[in-house]
């Protein structure tokens, strides 16, 4: 047999074996001991990596869950908004802990300054970025607190759950929302808030964040909260507070009694997914233009087609107008 061949085989074999031994010891030396439960926890997480939990991704959140579960013995303050109670219960099962059931939340757009309610006073041209427009000027409708309608919230949403309605210029949250909170941080005007979904998706909130006095606020937008305080007086549960000319309904105290909404002189208080009261039906429809109310119609409609989001939205709008 050829000697060169034997030499080559022998040399390569030797190099291979030596490298294998070195690699083995290096691997032993640098071995990272990791809690196997981290992998298990990560397995049950939704892997959306949305950051809604406040961590860099599902892996980081899994690490945090296992760490805190080991140290404190509870999972307070840690929650996967996408997976909700089911996933948290599974995680707690893996870690041998219990977790409190939390009410599901959803993103709520607190502005109703549609083209009809807050007519354009100037035209904006330039980069389609709410942050940029916010730094440049008060907004096309003139309201320095209102929605700019350039869709920063839409851009950051990983779940296709928010979209700008072309008819009103306002973002609309649909049922795909998992309450990750990305839009809440993206909005330069802090218009979007996470609120409890409520029973049967019923919610009442003030759809305005304008802190100006009544006069200027009303000048720019027909449905602005003017800080009159009528809703505060009528509320039997101390759920409504008035701060800086703006009413706010605390969702934890609100019992959804629906007394406040008819009191509001500008229609800034929105009721979602309630059966329409007979006597208010006409006025409600007059006040529309709001995407949120479009949502009301959609969600409450059982024969809703699950596909084609835009079709849904248009359907909602055409019902309204």
């Amino acid at each position: 047999m050829n000697v060169e061949l034997i030499y080559s085989v022998a040399t390569l074999g030797l190099i291979g074996s030596v490298s294998a031994v070195i690699l083995y010891f290096v691997a032993q030396k640098f071995k990272v001991i990791e809690d196997p439960r981290i992998d298990q926890v990560q397995e049950v997480l939704p892997s959306a990596n949305c950051g809604g939990c406040g961590f860099a991704g599902c892996r980081a959140f899994a690490e945090a869950l296992v760490m805190q579960g080991g140290e404190k013995g509870n999972l307070d303050g840690l929650k996967c908004p996408v997976g909700g109670n089911d996933v948290m219960a599974q995680v707690a099962g893996i870690l041998g802990l219990t977790v409190e059931q939390q009410d599901p939340v959803i993103a709520v757009v607190r502005c109703n300054g549609s083209f009809a309610n807050s007519p354009k006073k100037v035209i904006f041209e330039g980069a389609t970025s709410c942050v940029f427009a916010h730094n440049l000027f008060a907004g096309e409708g003139g309201c320095p607190y209102g929605c700019l309608g350039l869709g920063d919230c839409v851009k950051v949403c990983n779940f296709d759950a928010i979209d700008i309605d072309k008819a009103t210029g306002l973002p609309v949250v649909n049922e795909k929302c998992v309450a990750c909170g990305a839009c809440v941080t993206a909005c330069p005007r802090k218009i979007i808030e996470l609120r409890p979904k409520g029973k049967k998706d019923r919610r009442i909130f003030v759809s305005c964040v304008n802190q100006e006095k009544g006069g200027p606020a009303k000048k720019n937008c027909a449905v602005a909260c003017i800080g009159c305080g009528k809703c505060v007086k009528v509320c039997a549960f101390d759920a409504i507070t008035l701060l800086n000319n703006l009413a706010y309904i605390d969702p934890l105290k609100c019992r959804l009694c629906r007394k406040c909404a008819p009191e509001c002189p500008t229609g800034a208080i929105h009721e979602l997914n309630f059966p329409q009261k007979k006597e208010t039906l006409a006025t409600e429809i007059n006040k529309t233009g709001s995407r949120n109310e479009a949502l009301t119609e959609k969600v409450s409609e059982p024969a809703m087609t699950p596909d084609s989001k835009s079709g849904n939205n248009n359907g909602g709008i055409s019902n309204e107008t």
């Binding site: 330039g126 970025s129 942050v131 940029f132 730094n135």
Partner: peptide, 13 residues
């Protein structure tokens, strides 16, 4: 292209 619009936005950030 609205170069300055984006630069101004990025500069702020």
């Amino acid at each position: 292209r609205p170069l300055l619009d984006y630069i101004r936005f990025g500069k702020g950030k």
